[in-house]
Design a protein around this nucleic acid. Structure first.
Length: 557
RNA sequence: GGCAACGUAGCUCAGCGGUUAGAGCGGGCGCUUCAUAAGCGCUAGGUCAUGGGUUCAAAUCCCUUCGUUGCCA
């Protein structure tokens, strides 16, 4: 009986390239999870897309003298390229700019409006008479009422970090052209979040399988009390409001972007030639939906989106929201604006994807913030990937190829040590499978590496380079046991290291794609011929850490 | 200012009520030579931030203080 798994991943904002924080935060864990489940035979749908709307994109477009669409098209193409080269295996990576998305958002909006979960009200907003338009919060600057900083924006003050409303600012003024500015009443639509407070709290209290930080954060938030929130804005870049008379307004990104999970599933279904294929992922209690996000996104996925789903009443709520904490860079907080980050396109110009996938999994911020450093990257690559795992593969394959004529040996009688190591194979698969299923990716990777270490110990004890002088039968048995461990490691590492796992698959003489193998024991065949082995991973010069650190520092502003 | 999390070996962290507190890396000693000078074994005597409390029993639960970080007003 196979499981059905919907994997929703946070929508990256299409106003800049992706960095290691994005990857470690949600895309890599989601991909590991998806690959594991596909191999296990689960019915998997993994979707996401570029978030195209919102003020920062308008601002960037204005700065560069481009249309917003040109900005988002550029980054969307870059995202697709990064996924391909990093091996992030989306079933669909779309955008919020499609007709389909607009329709799905409209349907949900109208459903909630009809049920009175969306209502109209007025609010006081910044308006520029001279340019004849309402201004986004970010376009308004003024003195922060808390710290007195004169360059606070209408959404927040960068100096003291507090969240603000434009009406909070002292001496508010427009950023564009420095026009005078007034506040005018504007009519908007609000989501009645207060109606969902109790149902949400009741639901959240049952989610004992959630990560403690996600659960605690959400409970505290709900116990403090939700407020209704405006879901429309006086802007022109975004999804239109499906009600007559609101041409100068659009649906606010946070309402529209989370709906993208549903619209992406529907778009995927259409692309499969079966428009209803999305339904089992949203309307079957036996299917489970996982939302992979960074911790800054928790409220939207544990409260707002579930509230919208509850309001609709026909769609399943998230099963789990395995939010990750933050990844720091060389002991400092990642910062896009200060350019303190390693960008994916940049990384991929110089290094292979698997070492990064390995290191980011090993330090994945599952339970607390973690730190990426280039010296740690080089160290882990050289000592863990190359020395412990890659070298195990290489020493076993080389010895076998050289002494058994390029074929796998026929095993003789198995002694206790042989049996003990072979017994670890199904154990490791079960253990790692269990850990992967619980989204404990660091642990699962550790399980795989522990098996590699056990094999290294076994080889040391068996010393096949000694026995081959006197007893080829014994040597063949030893290597046959090792080869079966390699076959297992091929499976165990696949979710984390898809590229090298595929290569190992081929080095072991298996045909086709490793993706089609099952999550289970697969013995090597005695007598099977296999190719001349080449190393799986490349050792990095120690100087790489220094050079990359320099590069990072040089670009920072 | 309010709330929360964290503070464990030189470094990065795991453990989160129950035998002498663990792993990886670094350091020290030794073994091995098949392999990308890779592998394996042994070794670190750390007041589990601090001061109290609960308990037969606490790094593990509760409170104080200090420090770090995050969220919120």
């Amino acid at each position: 009986m196979s499981e059905r798994i919907f994997i929703a991943v946070a929508w990256p904002y299409a106003n800049g390239p992706l960095h290691l924080g994005h990857l470690a935060g949600c895309y890599l864990p989601a991909d590991i999870f998806a690959r594991y489940h596909r191999m296990k035979g689960s019915d998997v749908l993994m979707v996401s897309g570029s978030d195209q709307h919102g003020t920062p994109i308008t601002i960037r477009a204005e700065q560069e003298g481009l249309e917003p669409q040109q900005v988002v098209d550029r980054f969307h193409a870059q995202f697709l390229d990064s996924w391909e080269r990093m091996g992030i295996s989306f079933d669909l990576f779309t955008t919020t700019g499609t007709d389909n998305h607009r329709q799905v958002v409209h349907e949900l909006f109208l459903t909630l409006l009809k049920k009175d979960y969306i209502y109209k009200d007025t609010m006081l907003l910044p308006y520029s008479a001279e340019s004849n338009r309402f201004l986004p919060d970010r376009y308004v600057q003024g003195t922060c009422p808390h710290c007195g900083d004169e360059r606070a924006r209408g959404d927040q003050c960068d100096n003291c970090g507090r969240t603000l409303n434009p009406t909070d600012l002292i001496n508010p003024r427009s950023v564009i052209g420095g026009y005078d500015l007034e506040f005018r009443e504007s009519e908007h639509f609000f989501l009645r979040l207060t109606a969902f407070q109790e149902p949400l709290l009741k639901w959240v209290k049952k989610q004992s399988h959630w990560r403690p930080n996600v659960l605690n954060f959400t409970r505290r938030y709900l116990e403090d009390g939700l407020k209704d929130r405006a879901i429309t804005r006086d802007i022109l870049w975004g999804v239109p409001i499906p009600v007559e008379g609101y041409d100068s307004k659009r649906i606010y990104v946070w309402f529209e972007a989370v709906t993208g999970y549903l619209s992406a599933a529907k778009e995927w279904a259409q692309s499969q030639g079966d428009p209803d294929a999305w339904e089992p992922f949203f309307r079957d209690p036996n299917s489970r939906a996982y939302y992979f996000i960074g911790k800054d996104n928790i409220p939207f996925h544990t409260m707002i989106w579930p509230a919208m789903l509850m309001g609709d009443g026909t769609l399943d709520l998230p099963y789990d929201v395995p939010a990750n904490e933050f990844l720091n860079m060389e002991d400092a907080k990642l910062s896009t604006s200060r350019n303190w980050a390693v960008w994916l396109p940049d990384y991929l110009e110089r290094f292979d994807p698997d070492p990064l996938r390995y290191v980011l999994t090993a330090i994945m911020p599952e339970t607390s913030d973690s730190n990426f450093s280039w010296s740690d990257f080089v160290r882990r690559n050289n000592q863990e990937l190359v020395a412990t795992y890659g070298n195990l593969v290489h020493r076993v394959l080389t010895m076998t190829h050289r002494n058994f004529d390029g074929r796998f040996p026929q095993p003789g009688d198995l002694d206790e040590e042989d049996q003990a190591l072979l017994a670890r194979i199904p154990q490791a698969l079960e253990e790692a499978g269990d850990q992967l299923g619980k989204c404990s990716f660091r642990q699962a990777l550790g399980t795989a590496m522990a098996l590699a270490q056990a094999a290294n110990r076994y080889i040391d004890a068996k010393a096949p380079w000694q026995t081959m002088k006197t007893d080829m039968q014994r040597t063949g048995t030893t290597l046959w046991v090792c080869l079966n461990v390699l076959s297992c490691l091929r499976t165990l590492t696949y979710p984390f290291l898809p590229f090298s796992a595929q290569r190992l698959h081929e080095l072991l003489g298996f045909e086709g794609s490793i993706q089609d193998s099952a999550w289970g024991v697969r013995e090597v065949r005695a007598g099977q011929s296999f190719p001349q082995p080449t190393p799986l991973f490349t050792k990095l010069e120690e100087s790489v850490a220094e050079e990359e650190m320099e590069r990072l520092r040089a670009k920072a502003t």
